[in-house]
Write a protein that binds this DNA or RNA. Sequence first.
DNA 1: TAGACATTAATTGTCGACACAACATGAAGG
DNA 2: CCTTCATGTTGTGTCGACAATTAATGTCTA
Lengths: 235, 235
Amino acid sequence: MVQSLAQGRSTHSAARAEDRIYDAIRHAVLAQQLPPGSRLPELTLSEIFGVSRSVVRRALVRLAGDHIILMRRNQIAVVARPGPEETAQIFEARRHIESEVIRQVAGHLGETARTEIAGLVDAEHTAHREGAHEDRIHLSLRFHERLADFCPNQVLAGILRELILRTSIAVALYKVPGISACYREGDHRGITDAIFAGDSELAARLAREHLDHLEQRLTLAERDGQVDLASILRR
Amino acid sequence: MVQSLAQGRSTHSAARAEDRIYDAIRHAVLAQQLPPGSRLPELTLSEIFGVSRSVVRRALVRLAGDHIILMRRNQIAVVARPGPEETAQIFEARRHIESEVIRQVAGHLGETARTEIAGLVDAEHTAHREGAHEDRIHLSLRFHERLADFCPNQVLAGILRELILRTSIAVALYKVPGISACYREGDHRGITDAIFAGDSELAARLAREHLDHLEQRLTLAERDGQVDLASILRR
DNA sequence: TAGACATTAATTGTCGACACAACATGAAGG
DNA sequence: CCTTCATGTTGTGTCGACAATTAATGTCTA
């Protein structure tokens, strides 16, 4: 409930520098622009964002706490690379928590919320038909995150947000190169309909199956890539 | 402060300094020695542990990520003080996750694990009968944490560990002053028996009721206390 | 006495410097 | 050709210093 990140206007905007770094990396990972294993040197980041390493470090420590990056002693931080077993556990945990979140959302949804969710689903569908792969992924993530926002239990919602991120990392790692293999047309629509109809059990079950399907579409082939940090994180 | 002659500290012993601080505060919060609202000034901590503020800061950022402490801009970090609503959400989340963890544990428990768990339950029972309140709390927490350790899904277990901590903070805040009001004699034993018998559904249900009972024993009276950091954290 | 206000102390925010460890490179030897 | 070792480079670990901000203190007035 107390989700407000309301930051006062204090020190110029340096107050937000840490959050800028945190959000930029988070966003880049979500958008699958920073593949698992990507290196994140403190000095490079401090130059990109124009602050000292102290600020970068703080953002990195937070990201490490979220299991988004891995910080090992005396080594460069890297984007997390969950193994097959951990990936399975992440999916299972997300199924268990998201189904409950959706069960709770099924009741508490106002009119404005409904139209927003329905709009997201429509937009995603359109993006898919037009082949806008990037947009579709973004809208899909937005769909799940907004549902979390509307959950009355924001503690559960916070846990779900973290798991959505970790799931994204796993998908980025193990998805088949083919573009939108991990998308099933009516899933989000079906979940939404069940939520609107107030059928919480059906909605929860559909969410479970939705995630099941996504997990089954993954393969376990490994691969890594190098990226240009500045071009991705700069904005 | 007078410890400044420690020139010969090698880097890898200092490496654990951060973990020492993190664990010490974590432990002190769990043991309810650091009441919610306690202030944690960086300089004070750095003097207590004989390191610079950089190391302290890192530990504090991690703790803030775990929702154990609250760090607001330009203000002293304080131990979290969840309000009534957040407390209810924490309990609900924990019920939902711990029941699943216990459901999973019910199958995968080797002989050594069983004896250890049973030993913990017995020791807790003894501590209760002898009025060793501190020991009982410690053993009770140990019981829940060890169950998490034995869960095959360690992602879920990690989430549960965080919720156990947050629950402890809430209990420290809202428990009635009377000593062991939040203890029901046979609860842990019953859960253990169900787990050993392989009855995962029963075990999960008992865990839920166990937490329900604990939550209902809380009152919402507010209070705060000042403590001497050095005497608690020093070891 | 109670409240408003100016002043002082305490605390966090940020930075740059230096020491140490890990990594990359290349030479020497088998 | 491959392995091994020395060496330089890169990057992190920690610290202390200074600036900016908040909290605390004391003073004055009604």
